[in-house]
Nucleic acid binder design. Structure first.
Lengths: 195, 195
DNA sequence: ATAAAAATTGTCATACTTGACAATCTATCG
DNA sequence: CGATAGATTGTCAAGTATGACAATTTTTAT
């Protein structure tokens, strides 16, 4: 007997609310703010997840997992020969109405304190996975190219996209929109002469 | 009559302490922590600078100004024909013992809330200045190259350095040390065939 | 219906953060 | 010296954050 567990639903609601708060207030969002955003009390957060540190760790785990899962689902529907172009569209298309939330949270967490070490480890794992995915695509597109070279290009293109995203988020001149992508393409083209 | 003003010294001590705290705790450092780090009371901070927001804004103003000033001093001692190489050394030499503090603080502030809008504006100004400086060097080194192209390359190389720095700070594999710089050089080399 | 399981609410104590201001001390100039 | 500008310290009040737990309500299985 007993009652049906709402753990999964509540956890999702809490983490979604936390994510929305992170966008507004950064990492120094109080659990009370999160609770209000989620339409519940802080006690419920405590009940379902735990203390602040645990909430943050669970949040990062979840959004990195969701992010990667969605990415892989989308990737699965794109023919390999269009993969590079599609990836660049995704990384550099600032006009697109996609949700920046995840990336913003990743940004915030990258400079987080040691208190959230577990979350930071999770982030590292995600970046490594992203690099691997993109490097694999590059290997497919440039089969003759050196694999290390592919990975290096993947690392740099992702870095370029990250910094571009950050600078745009900061509010810098939009004049650099085309720039970042063009330069990413330049780096990729070096693979033509590799290996 | 009256007493000699210590405003400048005290302000410096406070901001230095704040900077050290930022490295340890990020932006959510309390003024009490700063005061303790500086060996004074919070009331003194209030007396010399003001409330939290003002302290942060002044901190960012000062370190961006110092950072740019030092950079320009160093640059003035380097012959123009070595400037590009020296800049790359500076941007990508992770082994060098230079002080990461400033860059870490810039990183933290990039995702700060709107409360610190003034500080963020200061950051934007600094980045624009950095891009301009580097673009000028590139123009000198590649006089035939298109000026817009120079600026685009400057933007991307700085972005590459920023993201590399962030990822290393996060704790990623050091295997990418050479990567970022090599790819930056690739982008710069495109200027040879420009214009 | 009723008992168990789980959800939800409410409350308390504690500690932290900040802003404001009063009170005191100290160096300097005339 | 002694007046005064300014440094320094101390304290108070208000607001916020967190952790813990007791009390209550709702759902579900039997």
């Amino acid at each position: 007997m007993g009652r049906k567990k709402l753990t999964e639903e509540r956890t999702t609601e809490i983490l979604d609310a936390f994510a929305r708060c992170m966008v507004k207030y950064g990492l120094d969002t109080s659990l009370d703010q999160v609770a209000e955003e989620a339409g519940m009390t802080r006690s419920i957060i405590r009940h379902y997840i735990g203390n602040r540190e645990e909430v943050v760790n669970v949040l990062i785990e979840r959004i990195t997992a969701d992010f990667l899962a969605e990415l892989q689902t989308e990737a699965a529907q794109i023919p390999q020969e269009q993969m590079i172009a599609a990836t660049l569209d995704y990384l550099f298309d600032d006009e697109a109405g996609y949700d920046n939330t995840d990336k913003l949270i990743f940004d915030v967490m990258m400079t987080a304190q040691d208190r959230y070490l577990q979350a930071k480890q999770t982030l590292i794992g995600m970046f490594e996975e992203l690099i691997t995915m993109f490097a694999d695509d590059l290997e497919f597109a440039y089969p003759q190219a050196d694999k290390t070279h592919c990975r290096d290009v993947a690392y740099s293109v992702l870095g370029l996209a990250m910094s571009h995203e950050s600078l745009q988020g900061l509010g810098m001149n939009k004049r650099y929109h085309a720039t970042a992508r063009t330069n990413a393409e330049t780096l990729i083209r070096t693979l033509e002469f590799s290996g």
